[in-house]
Amino acid sequence: MSFNADVSRFAKRIHVNQGEHFASGDPEVCLTAILGSCVAICLYDPAAKVGGMNHFLLPENPDSVQAHGRYGAYLAELLINDLMSLGAIKSRLEAKVFGGGKMFQGLRDVGATNAAFAKKFLMDEGIPVLGGSTEGTSARRVEFWPTTGRAFQKFVSQDMPPPPPPKPILETSIGDVELF
């Protein structure tokens, strides 16, 4: 079956934004993320047919006093816990890791740090990384099907033209209601 035909049957596309995670056992769900220097860890339990994705900005909170959704260590733990509540067994989890691009030349390579953290975290947790794509200089769009563990990635070209400017907002006043 071709990719496009397979995708059309997924009625529930859920975008996982930065600082979020999502776990599901619904066969109609497809999780998506757009990643630059951020990283997404996709986890899947093939026996329980559940999986999920997180999307983090930085590896760990240097303060380590307050957990926060932008940090990989926190989101990875939340994702694992949510998967276990859906019936996953940690020793059966498999991972795919995406993102960690170097988006700006001349600055610290946050993306490589994120990718290295994700791989080390998974190794320390005993979760094998079976695939993915990290680092490089392009952003990527990732799609992950949590009940099958299937993932698809498309690089976002830096040569793409910028989006058109927004249309001007017209103000109109009708009685006491102002419409923009």
Rank of each mutant, 00 (worst) to 15 (best):
A112R: 00
A95R: 00
E94C: 06
K120N: 08
M123N: 13
P128A: 10
G99A: 05
N81E: 13
N114F: 03
L83P: 05
V129W: 03
F104A: 15
F121H: 04
A118M: 06
N114R: 01
F104W: 14
I127K: 02
N81Q: 11
I127D: 01
G126H: 08
A112N: 11
L79M: 05
A95S: 01
K102S: 01
L130S: 09
D124I: 14
A115I: 04
A116Q: 11
K96E: 06
V129Q: 02
F121Q: 06
L130K: 15
G132A: 00
G131C: 02
K102W: 12
E94D: 03
N114G: 01
M103W: 03
G106E: 11
F98H: 08
G101E: 10
M84R: 07
N81F: 06
T113I: 12
L78W: 13
S85A: 14
L122T: 02
S133P: 12
K96S: 05
F104G: 12
A88S: 05
V129M: 04
A118L: 06
N114H: 04
L107M: 13
L122A: 07
G126D: 15
L93Y: 04
K90G: 02
L107K: 15
K96V: 00
D109Q: 01
S133Q: 13
K119N: 15
A88G: 01
L107T: 14
N114M: 04
I127R: 01
A116E: 12
L86T: 03
G99S: 04
R92C: 03
L107G: 13
V129G: 09
N81K: 12
T113L: 05
K119Y: 14
V97C: 08
A116D: 14
G87N: 10
A95G: 02
A115T: 08
K119E: 14
D124Q: 15
A115S: 05
L79Y: 06
A118S: 09
K90N: 06
M84G: 01
A88I: 04
L107V: 15
M84P: 01
L78I: 15
V97I: 06
L130H: 13
M123R: 15
K120F: 04
I80P: 03
L78E: 14
L107C: 13
E94W: 08
S133D: 13
L83W: 00
A115W: 05
R92N: 12
M84E: 10
D124P: 13
L130I: 14
I127H: 11
K90P: 05
A95Y: 02
I127Q: 01
G101K: 07
S85H: 14
K90S: 02
G132E: 07
F98E: 07
Q105A: 09
V97D: 03
L130N: 13
L107N: 15
I127F: 10
M123E: 15
D82Q: 04
D82L: 05
S85Q: 10
E125H: 11
N81M: 10
L83S: 09
K102P: 04
G106P: 07
L86H: 00
F104V: 14
A112L: 08
F104E: 15
G131F: 14
R92H: 13
G101V: 07
N81V: 09
E94H: 12
K90W: 04
G132W: 00
G99Y: 07
L122I: 00
